[in-house]
Design a protein around this nucleic acid. Structure first.
Length: 877
RNA sequence: GCCCCGAUAGCCCAAUGGCAGAGGCGCAUGGUUUAGAACCAUGUCAGUGUAGGUUCGAAUCCUACUCGGGGUACCA
């Protein structure tokens, strides 16, 4: 039965449903391994099933779908899968609030969001769908973890966590606001507990150098990763204990500025440093200070921004070169977890040391003079009062440094390192900022760590054949700790080694583990005998990965690490998982909230708030319509569940259809750019689709006269020029530039031209047919439903999905004459028309002869003429 | 604090070192309409966040700053 859709009015609801049914019925997007056919694995980052889609998802998945469909038209064997990053904290928070098990909440959300995704008409192979909270997925997390344990990649040590003393539970960084628990308002303590780590630092060098193997990644992402890994070259220096004070041990530090060694005036150690703890035994004030430091911010952002504080220990070390006595201070700006937990302080050349020294009246000694090559300038005078940026420059020479005076940075470092080495007090060393990856979480809704604690045997791995350790799905956390730890049916077990009663590990894995290899599992999601199989080597690596820029460091670095580990375990052939990466900018929206006296924060969705502005027209706050009371404005930020500022695309899809939603979000801005949400313009996108529909409808109403005139009128010639120019432009925008907004704009432009063409005879009619067919093809990756319907009308008996990407007819692009711009001293002064392939000398002469130009040039000497072929002439006088 | 990114018309954005305007929104006027909506047509507005520099030529490259966003290792 053929349903006639070609009604005068565009009816998105009907055609979208019909197109989706057709794709479904024909299994159009089922991907099969076809040896010899070039594959294109296009992957959008899988969503966390937070409840509803938001515009950020629509943006992400439309980009992926567009690229998938475009590559299918180019002839690739395309795989576009989808799944769910289904473990995580929000499910537990929802459980606490609604008293519903996280599993149920998660599965409900998945069901709803899957429906939403399907309504967007994405070309996804749903057969490969996976959810990380299902045992058939996380079983292989467990299996891989055990392999890493065997190889020594996974190991146990202590970790620092946020402890909420009221709820008696560990909090995530996000749940700590201004150093207080977000539910209880209690002051959070840092606590040390045991946990499991993965030795990502072993791979630091490889993760850094292999960035060069990724030309398809944005530079900004590679820069961020390189900075995060943070390879630095420096010197490890030992400061011997001072014999005249009761200092128990020498202090070891690492510094990248050994050239400033003669400027050291004190030493600073972390509150947890053994020497600090030793000193505190004899000093009550110091002990109090160290306890206070337990409440220091655990987050780096807050830690680094906090007011610097410290206290002298009364202990001393001696300078390795001069032998002078240096006091040891405990300070809150040194991290125990980084380097040696101690630093040599050079207040004259380090801004943090400078600030600290000034606060506590510690000496400041200048040992670097002004940058080389700088003019003698009072600006470069060293000031004890105010920090200047050149103090930390490596471009100066040593001063006040005895035999090193006058030497440059690298020469000094080399000399000092070798002098220290001779004394046995120092060596050159390479250091990474990157730390090992702690994967233990004291939480319920995550992948169980497959270990058993036995009084006799210690920590025992669960044998492979007993995997998976299944997470019970019926528990409801109440905010007071991990319910697994109080569920005997989970934790009581037999020791796999000796058979005695033992206790199962109740910590679960970081959800970044789940997302570190899901892209591999898509290739073989139905494989229940192994983590991977031969199919992974057909599809992997991912040809195009698309996701938010917020994942630039952690998720992408962990995934790279994980795939390198799997490569070394001989499970996969590739060692970089994502060949090309497109990082989409965040979709932002306003944030509104209220804070209670205890510090608890509630967020309100912007759609429920009336915005207020201040005198300068800036957003300052709002009124919640529900209760007419004010709410605070928290700036604009990423759409997210936790900030309650997501915009559900459903209303948009219901009112205008998925094609309009897709078109609008792609048209709004280039994908890599941050986008502040505003729905003005949706009407414009809808209007355009209506115009397209009407154009095709009107065209098809015309009866066709079979006689065709081969001599095209100027109007038709320029239409064909425009058409093929647009085909070239859209291909370039979609495939190379990834600027989908300009691709759409150029098709709109073509449409505007087309509307004005008179459909007066067979020639114009057939040209309009050619244009319309191509417009439908060019738009089809972006708005596939309307194009599916229109194609059937334009070319009855054929299907859009079988069509290749249109080819540019170069003959249509031939132009005899082109227009060029003439500048005089860089300012636009005239226009000239020249033959397409005119010589530079000819162009120059025509330009100089031009009347407009002569007005400016006459009477002056022409010093130089710059001719840019095809563009402009610049006459310099 | 540190690392990364951004700023162009009332708004979203284009200009791939070479004419600041392609496209869209909004607004205005006209047409159409009993009226409105819708639709069609025409028109409308900036010298590119600020201050310097490189260049024949800078929105684009460089430096500093301001504001905004992302990340900052347990949000995902």
């Amino acid at each position: 039965m053929v349903i006639n859709f070609m009604q005068e009015k565009y009816n998105p609801k009907k055609i979208e449903l019909y197109a989706q049914r057709y794709w479904d019925k024909t299994a159009a997007f089922k991907a099969a391994e076809i040896p010899g056919k070039q594959k294109y694995y296009c992957l959008s980052m899988f969503p966390y099933p937070s409840g509803k889609l938001h515009m950020g998802h629509v943006r992400n998945y439309t980009i992926g779908d567009l690229l998938s469909r475009y590559h299918r038209m180019l002839g690739f064997n395309v795989l576009q899968p989808m799944g769910w990053d289904a473990f995580g904290l929000p499910a537990e928070n929802a459980a606490i609030q609604n008293k519903v098990p996280p599993a149920q909440w998660t599965y409900d959300n998945i069901a709803y969001m899957r429906k939403q995704l399907q309504s967007l008409g994405l070309a996804i192979d749903w057969n490969r769908e996976l959810a990380t909270c299902k045992p058939n997925y996380y079983r292989w997390n467990q299996w891989l973890f055990l392999r890493m344990l065997e190889k020594g990649i996974a190991y146990k040590k202590t970790q620092v966590v946020n402890w909420d003393p009221v709820d008696q539970t560990v909090l995530a960084n996000e749940q700590v606001v201004d150093r207080r628990g977000w539910r209880t308002g209690a002051l959070i303590e840092k606590r040390e507990i045991p946990g499991y780590y993965l030795r990502i630092t072993e791979y630091a060098e490889e993760l850094l150098s292999d960035l060069d193997k990724l030309p398809g990644w944005p530079e900004r992402v590679k820069t961020m990763q390189a900075n995060w890994i943070g390879k630095s070259f420096g010197v490890e220096i030992t400061f011997p204990a001072d014999a005249t004070s009761n200092t128990p041990q020498a202090l070891k530090v690492f510094t990248t500025r050994a050239d400033t060694l003669l400027g050291v005036t004190y030493m600073a150690v972390a509150a947890e440093h053994p020497i600090a703890l030793h000193a505190a035994k004899y000093n009550r004030d110091l002990a109090t200070f160290i306890v206070k430091c337990k409440h220091n911010a655990a987050k780096e952002a807050e830690f680094a921004a906090q007011e610097k504080e410290g206290m002298a220990t009364g202990l001393f070390v001696v300078h390795p070169l001069t032998g002078s006595k240096l006091p040891i201070w405990v300070s809150n700006y040194v991290l125990m977890g980084y380097g040696e937990g101690a630093v040599m302080a050079v207040p004259a050349h380090d801004e943090r040391d400078f600030e600290f020294a000034k606060k506590y009246n510690l000496p400041i000694k200048q040992v670097i003079s002004e940058p080389i090559g700088s003019p003698l300038n009072p600006y470069f005078e060293f000031s004890m009062k105010q920090w200047k940026n050149w103090y930390s420059s490596k471009d100066g020479v040593c001063t006040n440094s005895g035999k090193y005076d006058g030497l440059k940075f690298q020469v000094t470092v080399d000399a000092i390192a070798s002098d220290l080495s001779a004394l046995g007090l120092g060596n050159k060393r390479t250091q990474f900022r990157l730390r090992d990856w702690g994967i233990s979480r004291q939480r319920y809704w995550g992948c169980p760590i497959p270990l058993v604690h036995c009084d006799t045997c210690g920590v025992v791995s669960v044998p492979d054949e007993q995997l998976p350790i299944v997470l019970p799905e019926d528990l409801v956390p109440d905010g007071s700790g991990n319910p697994l730890a109080s569920t005997p049916s989970f934790y009581v077990c037999d020791c796999p080694q000796c058979g005695k009663l033992a206790r199962r590990e109740t910590d679960t894995m970081d959800t970044f583990v789940d997302s570190s290899w899901y892209y591999i599992r898509y290739a073989c999601s139905d494989q229940d005998k192994a983590a991977t199989d031969a199919r992974t080597n057909y599809w992997l690596p991912v040809d195009q990965y698309i996701g938010g820029i917020e994942h630039a460091i952690l998720h992408l670095l962990y995934s790279r690490f994980w795939s390198k580990v799997m490569h070394n375990l001989k499970l996969v052939k590739f060692d970089e998982p994502f060949a090309n990466l497109l990082t989409q900018g965040m979709v932002l929206n306003e944030i509104y909230f209220r804070k209670t006296e205890t510090g608890r924060i509630t967020y309100f969705n912007p759609v429920d708030v009336d915005i207020q502005t201040d005198d300068q027209g800036k957003r300052s706050g709002g009124i919640l319509r529900a209760d007419d009371q004010p709410v605070e404005f928290g700036g604009v930020g990423t759409m997210s569940k936790s900030k309650n500022n997501g915009i559900d695309p459903q209303k948009l899809v219901d009112k205008y259809g998925a094609d309009t939603a897709r078109l609008f979000i792609m048209f709004a801005s280039p994908p890599e750019q941050t986008l502040e949400w505003a729905d003005t313009g949706v009407d414009g996108a809808f209007r355009f689709l209506n115009r397209l529909w009407k154009q095709v409808y009107n065209h098809l109403q015309q009866t066709i006269d079979p006689r065709i005139n081969n001599n095209l009128s100027t109007e038709l010639k320029s239409l064909r020029f425009k058409l093929h120019h647009t085909i070239a432009k859209v291909g370039d925008d979609l495939g190379r530039r990834h600027t989908f907004n300009t691709a759409i704009a150029s098709v709109m432009e073509l449409m505007n031209t087309l509307t004005k063409v008179h459909d007066s005879d067979a020639t114009s009619h057939s040209l309009i047919q050619e244009a319309l067919e191509n417009i439908v093809l060019l738009l089809s990756p972006i708005v596939p439903h309307i194009c599916h319907a229109l194609w059937r009308e334009l070319k009855p008996g054929t299907e859009l999905l079988d069509q290749p990407w249109p080819k540019v007819d170069n003959a249509a692009l031939v132009q005899d004459e082109i227009e060029m711009v003439v500048q005089v001293n860089g300012r636009l002064r005239g226009q000239i028309r020249v033959a397409k392939n005119a010589e530079c000398a000819t162009i120059e002469r025509i330009a100089l002869d031009n009347n407009q130009v002569q007005k400016y040039v006459a009477g002056y000497e022409v010093k130089k003429v710059v001719v840019v072929p095809g563009r402009l002439v610049n006459i310099v006088i």
